[in-house]
C-alpha cells in the first residue's frame, strides 16, 4: 500500500500540482498539433499499403504476392523501435537522410500497414465467392467487382481490427520521441528535464493518451452501430 499512498501524496502536493497544471496545455497542444497529425498521416499511409498488399494477395498476383508475403514477414518479425532506429539513424550512412517526422510516418505506416493488410486479407476472403460469380454473371469486370462489392464488405468486416490498429498506432507514436520527433511524449521528457517531476509528468501524459484513445473508442462504437452490417440481419 505504501507506494500507492506515496504516489497520491506526491501527486497532490502543491509543488507538483503547479507543475502539472503548467505542463497540461503544452502537452495537450503537442498532442493535438503533433501526435494526432502523425497518427492520422501514418494511418492513411498504412491504409493505402494495407489495401494494396491485401488485394495483391487476394488476387494472387504472381511475383508481387511473394513480395507482399516477404514484406509482412519482415515487418512482423522485427521490433518497431528497431525499425525506427534503422531508418532514422541507420540510413544516413548510405546517403539516405530523412527528417525525423517523415521517417516516423514511413516507419509507422509500413509497420502497421503489414498488420492491417492481414486483417483486410482475412476479411476479403470472408466475402462469399457466390457474390463474385454473380458479379461476373451481370457482366462486371474483376476490378468492378472488387471495388463495388468485395472491398466495401471486407472493410466493414475488418473495421474493428482496423480501429484497433489506429488506437495502437496512436500510442505507438510515442516511440517517435526516440528519433527526436518533438511529439507529446518527447515534450513530457523535455519538461521533466527542467523540473524533475517524472512521476507526475508521465502520469499526466499517460492520461492524455488515455483520453485520446477513449475518444477513438467512442467514435468506433458509434460508427460500428451506424455501419451495422447493411440494415442488420433478419436471420
Amino acid at each position: 500500500m505504501t507506494p500507492i499512498v506515496t504516489f497520491f501524496e506526491k501527486l497532490f502536493s502543491g509543488r507538483v500540482w503547479g507543475i502539472l497544471l503548467d505542463a497540461f496545455p503544452r502537452l495537450l497542444g503537442y498532442g493535438i498539433r503533433v501526435t494526432v497529425p502523425l497518427t492520422v498521416i501514418s494511418f492513411a499511409l498504412a491504409m493505402v499499403i494495407a489495401v494494396i498488399v491485401a488485394l495483391i494477395q487476394f488476387a494472387q498476383v504472381r511475383g508481387l504476392r511473394q513480395l507482399c508475403r516477404f514484406y509482412i514477414w519482415l515487418i512482423r518479425g522485427t521490433p518497431l523501435l528497431v525499425q525506427l532506429y534503422l531508418i532514422f539513424y541507420g540510413l544516413p550512412s548510405i546517403g539516405v537522410t530523412l527528417n525525423a517526422f517523415p521517417a516516423a510516418v514511413l516507419v509507422f505506416g509500413f509497420n502497421e500497414g503489414a498488420y492491417m493488410a492481414e486483417s483486410i486479407r482475412g476479411a476479403l476472403e470472408s466475402v462469399t465467392k457466390g457474390q463474385i460469380e454473380a458479379g461476373y454473371c451481370v457482366g462486371m469486370s474483376y476490378l468492378q467487382i472488387m471495388w463495388h462489392i468485395v472491398l466495401p464488405q471486407a472493410l466493414r468486416t475488418a473495421f474493428p481490427a482496423l480501429s484497433n490498429s489506429l488506437i495502437s498506432m496512436l500510442k505507438g507514436t510515442s516511440l517517435a520521441a526516440s528519433i527526436t520527433v518533438m511529439e507529446m511524449f518527447r515534450q513530457a521528457q523535455v519538461i521533466n528535464g527542467r523540473v524533475y517531476e517524472a512521476l507526475g509528468l508521465y502520469t499526466e501524459v499517460a492520461l492524455i493518451y488515455l483520453l485520446f484513445c477513449s475518444v477513438l473508442t467512442v467514435v468506433q462504437r458509434k460508427m460500428e452501430k451506424k455501419l451495422s452490417s447493411y440494415g442488420g440481419n433478419r436471420a
Binding site: G130, E133, I149, Q153, S229
Partner: peptide
C-alpha cells in the same frame, strides 16, 4: 445471358 443461383448470391452491401 443471366444466371440465377441456388443461394441467390445477392450483393450483401447493396
Amino acid at each position: 445471358t443471366a444466371f440465377v443461383f441456388q443461394n441467390y448470391n445477392l450483393f450483401l452491401n447493396k
